[in-house]
Amino acid sequence: MTLLERTYRTIDLVRVKSNEAIVFCSLGKDSLVLLDLIYPKFDRVVCVFMYFVEGLEHIERYIKWVKAKYPKVEFIQVPHWNLTYILRSGMYCVPNPKIKLLKLADVDLAMRLKFGIDYVFFGMKKADSMNRRLMLNTYPDYENAGKVYPLADWTQRDVLTYMRQKVLPEPVRYSNKASGGIGFNLYCFLWLRKNYPSDLRKIIKAFPMSERILFEYDNGTK
């Protein structure tokens, strides 16, 4: 059985139980591949994007592409669960001790209840980390209590190969050194200042003290 056949087996095992699916879509490589694999299989697909700052232009471009490419998708944006830790601790902002700390499982449950859908797909891979490998190895058919991981056996090379074959767009890379989504790091802020200064202003407005990242760089203090 090929990698793709094993992947579709995991998806099809869910499809016989439900014609609806939720996909956590970060707009990164893994989640775009996952969405492309799932989309033809289900009658209803809800994409959940978790943001740190809402309405960033360079993110909205990719959301528009997803909606055009997969027209039956329902796309929802919700605050990232990590924001609760950032806001409560006061990372680059005034701390708010009243914020209730959340986890991914809390957002997962909220989306299931909101849309009445039992199965949620994630793009996590064993190759991501040792912890991911240990976790995914414990799930038969890469499904656990409605959480589904079809890309569990994929490598980064597999993901890139699939993207080339399907002509999927390359997600934003803030630098050769940085990985993942947007965050409070110098490489991300430099990329935004050069390419999307209006998005940088939105982030600094939401997290005023984050301006220190560029200030220290520009003044050689870090």
Rank of each mutant, 00 (worst) to 15 (best):
92 Y>S: 01
44 R>H: 07
74 E>N: 08
86 I>A: 05
87 L>C: 05
88 R>W: 00
203 I>Y: 00
141 D>N: 13
129 S>R: 13
109 L>V: 11
128 D>K: 06
1 M>H: 14
195 N>C: 03
140 P>H: 04
88 R>G: 00
47 C>S: 09
48 V>L: 07
2 T>M: 12
120 V>Y: 02
222 K>N: 12
66 V>D: 03
181 G>T: 06
193 R>V: 13
71 P>H: 01
125 K>V: 04
158 D>G: 07
121 F>V: 04
60 E>W: 09
175 S>I: 11
59 I>N: 06
201 R>D: 13
42 F>S: 02
221 T>V: 15
26 S>F: 04
13 L>G: 12
23 V>Y: 02
45 V>Y: 01
18 S>V: 05
216 E>A: 06
41 K>T: 04
203 I>R: 00
9 R>P: 03
198 S>V: 07
47 C>K: 03
128 D>A: 12
31 S>H: 01
181 G>A: 12
28 G>N: 01
160 L>K: 13
81 W>G: 00
53 V>E: 01
135 M>L: 15
92 Y>F: 14
30 D>L: 02
219 N>L: 11
173 R>T: 11
25 C>V: 06
109 L>M: 13
178 A>H: 15
134 L>C: 06
127 A>E: 14
187 Y>K: 13
127 A>G: 09
133 R>L: 14
63 I>L: 11
10 T>N: 07
149 Y>D: 01
98 K>Q: 12
55 G>M: 13
154 W>Y: 09
116 G>L: 12
139 Y>F: 15
210 S>K: 00
46 V>T: 11
76 I>G: 02
107 V>A: 09
156 Q>E: 15
173 R>H: 13
169 P>C: 07
9 R>S: 14
30 D>W: 00
47 C>W: 03
25 C>R: 02
77 Q>H: 09
44 R>I: 07
81 W>M: 02
201 R>Y: 03
88 R>S: 00
45 V>N: 01
147 K>P: 03
137 N>L: 13
195 N>S: 11
39 Y>G: 03
24 F>W: 06
181 G>K: 09
1 M>D: 13
54 E>G: 08
53 V>T: 10
58 H>V: 08
141 D>H: 11
160 L>D: 14
2 T>W: 11
169 P>N: 08
143 E>H: 07
185 N>E: 10
94 V>F: 02
30 D>N: 03
40 P>L: 02
220 G>P: 06
193 R>N: 13
143 E>T: 10
124 M>N: 15
188 C>T: 15
15 R>G: 07
155 T>C: 10
58 H>E: 10
59 I>V: 15
122 F>I: 04
170 E>C: 10
86 I>N: 01
80 H>I: 08
160 L>S: 12
114 K>P: 10
135 M>W: 10
27 L>F: 10
154 W>V: 07
163 M>S: 11
216 E>M: 04
205 K>A: 11
28 G>E: 02
8 Y>V: 09
158 D>P: 07
176 N>R: 13
118 D>P: 06
138 T>K: 14
71 P>Y: 03
68 A>E: 15
98 K>I: 04
11 I>Q: 03
154 W>I: 04
106 D>T: 10
93 C>N: 04
61 R>I: 13
41 K>C: 05
199 D>V: 07
32 L>T: 11
171 P>T: 08
146 G>L: 04
128 D>G: 08
